[in-house]
Simulated scan of single mutants.
Amino acid sequence: MEQIGIYEQLITQVVEQNLNRERFYVGERVLESAEAATWLSRFLAKLVEHAINAIPNSSYSYRIERVRSGQPVNL
Score class of each variant (00 low, 15 high):
E28T: 14
E49I: 08
F43I: 02
R23G: 03
R21W: 02
I64F: 05
N18L: 15
S58F: 02
P56R: 04
G27Y: 01
E49N: 07
I64E: 03
Y62M: 07
R23I: 10
H50Y: 11
G5Q: 11
G70F: 03
I52A: 15
P56F: 03
R66E: 13
N18F: 05
Y25H: 11
Y7K: 15
F43P: 02
E35P: 06
L44V: 11
I55W: 00
N20W: 10
L19P: 02
Y62S: 06
S59F: 00
V73H: 06
R68W: 08
L10M: 11
V67R: 04
N18H: 14
A34Q: 08
S58I: 03
I55P: 04
P56V: 05
V67G: 04
V48Y: 03
S41L: 13
Y25F: 10
S61E: 08
R63E: 03
A37F: 10
Q13L: 12
I64A: 04
E2V: 04
S61K: 00
E32V: 07
G70P: 00
I4A: 04
H50L: 14
F24S: 09
M1D: 10
G27Q: 08
E35M: 03
G5E: 10
T38M: 11
R68Y: 06
N74V: 14
I4H: 00
T38V: 15
E35R: 05
Q3I: 03
S58W: 01
R66Y: 07
L75P: 05
S69N: 12
T38G: 01
I52M: 15
G27D: 01
V15P: 01
F43G: 05
A51K: 09
I4Y: 02
L19Q: 07
S59G: 01
S33T: 07
I6Y: 01
E22F: 10
N57K: 13
A51F: 07
T12W: 08
Q17D: 13
R68F: 04
S58E: 06
P72Q: 03
T12N: 10
V30C: 05
A54Q: 12
A51M: 11
Q3T: 09
I55E: 14
R63G: 00
S59H: 08
I55G: 03
L10E: 15
S59P: 00
S58H: 05
A45M: 08
Q13K: 15
R63H: 06
N53R: 15
N20K: 14
N18Y: 10
N74C: 07
E32F: 05
L19D: 09
Y60C: 00
V15C: 08
Q9M: 09
A36S: 12
Q13S: 13
A45D: 08
S33P: 13
Y25P: 04
S61N: 10
